[in-house]
């Protein structure tokens, strides 16, 4: 199957610091790939390169086989939606905010959103559970609700590739599950491809098809593969310098990471 996203030998340097080095991996259609790694390992930089905010020093990214560098932003926005880590508080209503996701599809002299745009915005507001906040202002709702609204906005772009930077960071456990379940459902219904950055290793292991673990020390990929292959006690010790226990989740059989005090780990 042709990959949706191909990342080839990507390197990025900020002044003297090497952030990413020789990063290569593919994301296939309908796949859910999560990039994990310690703070400052370049996860967000990777997202910024994919969204053309930062330019890579070396390497390139292809979307459906085409180099994204010369690609028009508007054309890209019809295929890729990006949910950033934080959403700034603005005074517009949630409804108008979600409708902004339809802008890449506006025709040249279109001035008002049409019925179709409004229906799509409503559909995703319902799916993300922010429909009851439709008339509330973005700057008056909570950080978690704002995050949901920004996911609804990204989905209103009806992308084939959804790129998300820490989408669950401001959410409680109910909403974390809601978002990840929603994404799982959308993958099945729309064969949506998802590339995500997550801090929470257990959530990453539970929901992703594949994980890409970045190593902060050299900016390279430490390991890439299924959650079972990547989330091992040894790889976490090597990359995070922390001893953990990894046991299979009794329900899903996916790896679950347990953190205990280092004394308790010694006595074990």
């Amino acid at each position: 199957m042709n990959p949706v996203l191909e990342i080839e030998h990507l390197s990025f340097q900020y002044r003297e610091n090497i952030i990413l080095q020789d990063i290569s991996f593919n994301v296939s259609k309908g796949e859910f790939v999560t990039v994990i790694g310690p703070n400052g390992c370049g996860k967000t930089t990777l997202i910024n390169i994919i969204s053309k905010i930062n330019r890579p020093g070396k390497g390139r990214i292809r979307l459906y086989g085409r180099d994204i560098n010369p690609m028009l932003r508007r054309k890209m926005a019809r295929q890729v939606a990006i949910v950033m880590q934080t959403t700034d508080p603005v005074a517009m209503t949630v409804e108008d905010y979600v409708l902004l996701g339809r802008l890449p599809f506006f025709k040249k002299y279109q001035f008002f959103e049409n019925r179709h745009d409004i229906d799509i915005a409503k559909k995703y507001m319902e799916m993300t559970g922010v429909i009851k906040l439709a008339k509330s202002k973005i700057h008056e709702i909570s950080g978690g609700e704002r995050q949901l609204a920004s996911i609804a906005r990204a989905l209103a772009q009806e992308p084939s590739l959804l790129v998300m930077d820490e989408p669950t960071s401001h959410l409680d456990i109910t909403r974390q599950a809601r978002i990840l379940e929603l994404i799982r459902r959308l993958r099945q219904e729309l064969s949506l491809t998802v590339l995500m950055v997550l801090h929470d290793l257990n959530l990453a292991g539970e929901y992703s098809d594949r994980l890409v673990l970045l190593n902060k020390e050299n900016g390279r990929i430490f390991k890439a593969g299924t959650p079972e292959e990547v989330l091992t006690e040894q790889s976490i010790l090597d990359v995070y310098h922390t001893r953990v226990m990894v046991l299979p989740n009794p329900v899903s059989n996916k790896p679950l990471i347990f953190l205990a005090s280092q004394d308790a780990m010694d006595s074990k």
Binding site: N48, K52, A77, M84, V90
Partner: peptide
């Protein structure tokens, strides 16, 4: 006017929505 609407979310978000 649409560029300005998108810019309310910040330059990066506006770029992600396809604006130069």
């Amino acid at each position: 006017c649409f560029d300005l609407n998108a810019l309310m979310l910040g330059e990066e978000e506006a770029a992600n929505l396809g604006f130069n």
